[in-house]
Structure formats: structure tokens, C-alpha cells
């Protein structure tokens, strides 16, 4: 029995985890009305913000995976918004790789897997209810692929410019916002896997995803409550061939302002929805992320400053994924 989805192993795995501690704490659901890192979550959102915003953060994921990210969002009155996002994501601790001598394997030198992603978003405030946006992405990956005569790693890298995300955000009413986002369109990275004797070329086309998201605001015990849900679907592979079985991942989480300066969050992330859902194997192998987080308003220290922390179990129970970031609104 295989409860693996179609997506696992296909191109763009490093682009699938979310960005930002607040979103992580809410199960990774933030596409309808993201407060931070709008270029990542929904490029339409920056037109709707009332302030410029600068954010910087870092993350540590299980098994040595690491994040470093930052964003600058600003308004271009009267109707435009722009955002610049930078994301480093990788595994700098590839320290347990062995050579191919099965009987007497020897450890190889430490290596690192590095990816960098940049997104430039432009959004337009169409009406009081609707805004739309697009962003253009730059993707870069670097991977150890061979060893030279001196025992040093030979790295291969690839870069692609032109990946595109398109998003809209629609305010249904005062409580409900709906977002639609298509990510990683037209993304292409061409690897030349460097070797001493040959250099095969591989086209790496991340899968496009289609996200339908909601953000509902209300109050609980007279205190503000926000409930986000993202349903991210995968229908095609990177070459627009239909996947054998379409599938979706549901993420949902809530944020509650318990104190004037304290927000708490919790959620469930990456719940796989596919054709196996009603089988016994699906329930026995069911896994998802359990997330939590909090934000502290630090305006007393610096006006407009908020610190966010998010934590989640990973889907293999190998450890915790954590992100910590600070945002400045001005």
C-alpha cells in the first residue's frame, strides 16, 4: 500500500513549504488574506495593505533543513502594491553521505543543498472588494553531484527566471475573504549535472498548484478570532501533463488575540486528500502537521514591530519545524 501522494518526489518540493511563522502556526493556511510575506502567499494582497512592511525571519526544520527569508512590501498609491521576497531554503548539513562501496562504505565529506528564491509581486486594488496580483520568480538550486580528484565536492546548480504566481483576493463581506492563487506557472530550471566525465541535462519543472483559500474573522469571548483555510490542489505536472490522480492538501488554522499584545495560533496542515481517502490504509497511515504559534506585539519597544513564532510537527515525526520572524510596519 502506498499512501504517498502524486506530488512527493516531483519537481519543486522545496517550494511547497510555507513562509512565515504566523502562517506556520496556522497550519500553513494564509493564502486568502496574508498579513506577512504576501508575495509568497498571494500577490494580490499587498495592494490591500495600509502600511509598508519589512519582515525578516529564519526557520529550522527537522533533519537539518533550514530557512532564511525576508520581504519588503510597500504601497504605490493610489491602487498599486509591490513586494519583494527573498527565501533561502536548503539543507546545509548533508553530513551522513557514504560512497558506493557496499562492503566497506566510507563517509563522504560534508556537503550542502542550497536553494534561493526571489519573488517580485505587483498587485492592483481593483475595487473595495477585489484586488489582483502577479509575481515573477527567480529560482536557484545547488546540489553536490560528484567528487573531484582531490576529494572535494563538485556542485551542480541551476537557475530559472520567469516562474509566475497569479492571485486574486475577494472580500465577500466584512467577515469573509476568499483568495485564489495559482503558483509556479512556467517555472523551469535546467540542470547540467556536472561530472568529470559527462554532463547530463535535466529539465526541472516545478508543479503548478491551485489554491482556493478563505479567511474568516469573528470574535471569540469578545476577542478577535481569525480562521484560515487553504485547499491546495495539484492537477498537472510541470509539463502540464495530467497527473495520474489529482490530489489536494488541506491546511487550516485559527488565530485568537488573547491579550492586547498577544496572539495565539494553532492548526493542522497538509492533510492529504486523494482517491485513497476512504480506504483503511489511508486512515492507518494518516498524517498531517500539527501546528501552533504566537505573536507578540512589540510596539512598546519599537512602533509597528511584531515578533512571530510558529512550530509544527513534520509529517514523518522526525522533529519539529520552527520559524521565527519579526515584522516592522511603517
Amino acid at each position: 500500500m502506498v499512501t504517498a501522494g502524486q506530488v512527493g518526489g516531483l519537481s519543486g518540493a522545496y517550494l511547497r513549504p510555507g513562509v512565515g511563522a504566523a502562517a506556520l502556526g496556522m497550519g500553513g493556511a494564509s493564502s486568502a488574506s496574508p498579513e506577512n510575506f504576501t508575495a509568497w502567499w498571494n500577490p494580490a494582497a499587498s495592494a490591500d495593505t495600509k502600511e509598508n512592511k519589512f519582515a525578516l525571519g529564519a526557520g529550522s526544520r527537522s533533519l537539518g533543513r533550514s530557512d532564511l527569508y525576508g520581504e519588503f512590501d510597500f504601497k504605490v498609491p493610489p491602487r498599486l502594491g509591490m513586494g519583494f521576497l527573498f527565501l533561502y531554503r536548503g539543507d546545509p548539513f548533508l553530513d551522513n553521505l557514504y560512497n558506493d562501496d557496499y562492503d566497506n562504505p566510507e563517509k563522504l565529506p560534508d556537503a550542502a543543498y542550497t536553494t534561493c528564491t526571489g519573488k517580485i509581486s505587483l498587485s492592483y486594488y481593483v475595487s473595495r472588494k477585489l484586488s489582483a496580483g502577479v509575481n515573477i520568480g527567480i529560482n536557484y538550486q545547488r546540489l553536490p553531484s560528484s567528487i573531484d580528484d582531490n576529494g572535494e565536492w563538485i556542485y551542480s546548480s541551476t537557475a530559472g527566471i520567469g516562474a509566475m504566481d497569479i492571485g486574486v483576493s475577494y472580500k465577500w463581506n466584512d467577515n469573509l475573504t476568499i483568495g485564489l492563487v495559482v503558483r509556479d506557472l512556467f517555472s523551469l530550471m535546467t540542470w547540467e549535472l556536472t561530472d568529470e566525465t559527462y554532463s547530463p541535462t535535466i529539465e526541472d519543472r516545478p508543479l503548478p498548484s491551485f489554491t482556493c483559500a478563505t479567511s474568516y474573522t469573528d470574535s471569540l469571548m469578545h476577542k478577535p478570532l481569525k480562521w484560515n483555510t487553504d485547499l491546495k490542489g495539484y492537477l498537472f505536472d510541470g509539463e502540464w501533463e495530467k497527473l495520474e490522480r489529482p490530489e489536494a492538501y488541506l491546511s487550516t488554522g485559527a488565530e485568537w488575540q488573547t491579550w492586547k499584545t498577544l496572539y495565539v495560533r494553532m492548526g493542522l496542515g497538509d492533510i492529504l486528500l486523494n482517491g485513497d481517502m476512504f480506504t483503511d490504509e489511508y486512515s492507518s497511515d494518516f498524517f498531517c502537521k500539527i501546528t501552533a504559534g504566537l505573536s507578540v506585539d512589540l510596539s512598546k519597544i519599537k512602533k509597528g514591530m511584531v515578533a512571530n513564532y510558529g512550530v509544527a510537527t513534520d509529517k514523518t515525526w522526525a522533529g519539529l519545524d520552527q520559524q521565527l520572524d519579526v515584522t516592522f510596519s511603517f
Binding site: 502506498v2 499512501t3 504517498a4 501522494g5 512527493g8 518526489g9 518540493a13 513549504p17 509529517k315 522526525a318
Partner: peptide, 10 residues
């Protein structure tokens, strides 16, 4: 598992 901890294969 891949980088997003999506199961690739059993």
C-alpha cells in the same frame, strides 16, 4: 520523503 516531507515511495 522529499524536501517537503511528502512521501515519495514506500
Amino acid at each position: 520523503y522529499d524536501f517537503n516531507m511528502d512521501c515519495v515511495k514506500t
